[in-house]
Nucleic acid binder design. Structure first.
Lengths: 345, 345
DNA sequence: GTGAAAGCGCTAACAC
DNA sequence: GTGTTAGCGCTTTCAC
């Protein structure tokens, strides 16, 4: 039985195959494929032609082992369902795009255990850097990051002790700032609605900053509601209904994120509340979605895109040598929208 | 100047370090760390203790090169900003979670060029499988996937010729089905609103199926609007306003995705349209957000989570040997919501 | 400008 | 149960 003239290669192609096909040494082929060193135009063409013809794809594993260089940046985030994280990622990807570096994403589902696992897994690929959400990590995780001897950028939150570099906002300050804005507009009977997530440190810090500032002027959070899972918009409605039913004298609702806030806003509008005359509302994050709602919900922009870009910028700078322990604190912008401003300026 | 007693290791730790620290051969250390073969409880403990103490993280690069096994699955998607892709990813991650395999995400931004680059980059890490959105790819990309000799699962769309396996829905059928449902409810003057994206093959196929079915009963799309970029909810409002202004006699609006549909719905409700008596609406995708709106927008669930799970299941099965060319067509479920059903059943 | 030799850190295969 | 040897596919280094 004659064999077909073009037998597909059973063994993946190697440099050697390209070397043989082009009559050029492996070393020179390697140089051509990496654009390194001086190679004559003639050999260069021969090599590229042979590689193209064979459909050769270099083996980065071998390359990485030989050169001890891996052009990957580990990006570790809690979730992909919450749009804020993909947004950070987009910023990272944008900045990395002009470079040799590539982002690799790991998701922890807000679990410290999974975070350790994902981190371990990623570090075992010896990435050029780590960008990780949050500043709270298990001691084991911190140990791993320190021991890895690669640049580490903790992002989104600056309230705490970073392992190395940090880029983000102060959620405590954000909470305070919102409290100030609310009080300034004359609201006094304030309710809080948020996620039932003991591990959402950023939400906790905002809440702490918020209540702290209220306390200073003799106010407190009069009622609260928490949720977990499900459609945030729908949960926002349900929680708002429950809270207003229980505490009808509330005059302001502070939501821990924009989606539940949007749900609450839609609910209140349907029920005919006078907003913000009778009832004010505010969310958190500054998500794009808000722009299409009947009213603009007050919120605070958390600059996710910018955070991603800055974090990536630090990794890129470190790859070129130097640096260490950078700290970038961004200032969240408050926007009063149509649900917080009672006194016209 | 005396050196500090505990000098942090300048050189990353290797198996050899653990071997020396534990007095066990490298090979046995390797066995312990991978849970392979029989190792006595005593040596096992010695090794684990030494590894833990040193903070050793194995080098997967070397491991992968030696074993020619890489436990990564490349997942290539057009975007992270459109929630449908993170949802697919969640399904993939869920199924892979019980296994040795790990997803690695690449994003193409809907560009065939970038798709080629991302694919090349990922294949050069020799992953155990590829899951890639869409069934339309450049010839070069198809060539690479064929040559890679790894399982490839094209997802989300089954209308076309897959390289290997495919999991998804027929968007052409989805378009037809929606057209049938609309006609059945007595709507006749139909407008279409969608993305201005020549490369969104799935939206195109839906539109083709849609118009095809309309044509069969002597109908056609009377007016259309397209957008690109920006807040989808807001764009949905604007496009709807523009279209209704231009063609006030339209009685149905078919949106190419739920977000713009939601924007349109909010707009129409504010303007006091009688829905669906005077004007019907439908979107596409079945996104969670819809549940919190004042009315439930008619839509079609595209089973993103399920698609991700099935695709991952195929990769896992292949890793155990056998299989090839699997084809899984899912049936999108239509939901009439409050914006499409005129005739009560 | 090009090539030959050595070795990156691990695991497969086999010996004991 | 444990150790030894060879080598994965590339890049570094140095020689020419």
């Amino acid at each position: 039985m004659a064999e077909s003239p073009t037998i597909p290669p059973r063994r993946p192609l190697t440099l050697r195959d390209v070397s043989e096909a082009s009559g050029v040494s492996e070393m020179t082929v390697s140089r051509v494929l990496r654009n390194r060193g001086d190679v004559s135009a003639a050999t260069r063409d021969k090599v590229l032609e042979a590689a193209r013809e064979l459909g050769y794809v270099p083996n980065k594993i071998a390359g990485a082992l030989a050169s001890s260089r891996v052009n990957l940046v580990a990006v570790i985030i809690p979730s992909l369902s919450n749009m804020v994280f993909p947004e950070v990622l987009a910023g990272v990807a944008e900045t990395l795009d002009g470079t040799e570096l590539q982002p690799v994403v790991g998701v922890t589902n807000y679990s410290p255990d999974r975070e350790e696992k994902v981190l371990y897994e990623m570090l075992s690929w010896r990435p050029s850097g780590v960008i990780i959400a949050g500043i709270e990590h298990s001691e084991t995780a911190r140990q791993m990051m320190r021991a890895a001897e690669v640049p580490v950028v903790e992002i989104m939150d600056v309230d705490g002790e970073p392992v190395d570099a940090v880029v983000g906002i102060s959620h405590r300050r954000a909470g305070r700032k919102m409290a100030e804005a609310i009080l300034k507009q004359g609201f006094e009977r304030i309710g809080f609605l948020g996620t039932q997530m003991p591990l959402d440190h950023r939400a906790r810090k905002r809440f702490e900053g918020f209540t702290e500032t209220l306390a200073k002027s003799g106010h407190e959070v009069l009622d609260q509601e928490f949720y977990s899972g499900g459609s945030a918009l729908l949960k926002g409605r349900e929680m708002t209904a429950a809270l207003l039913e229980r505490s009808p004298d509330i005059d302001f609702l502070y939501y821990s994120n924009d989606l539940i806030g949007a749900g609450g806003l839609l609910y209140c509008l349907e029920r005919g509340y006078d907003i913000p005359g009778q009832l004010g509302l505010a969310g958190f994050n500054g998500v794009e979605l808000l722009q299409g709602l009947p009213r603009r919900l007050a919120t605070m922009d958390t600059e996710r895109h910018q955070i991603g870009r800055e974090a990536a910028r630090i990794i890129v700078a470190r790859a070129k040598g130097g640096g260490g322990g950078e700290r970038v604190e961004l200032e969240p912008r408050i926007s009063l929208g149509d649900t917080l401003r009672r006194y016209k300026p």
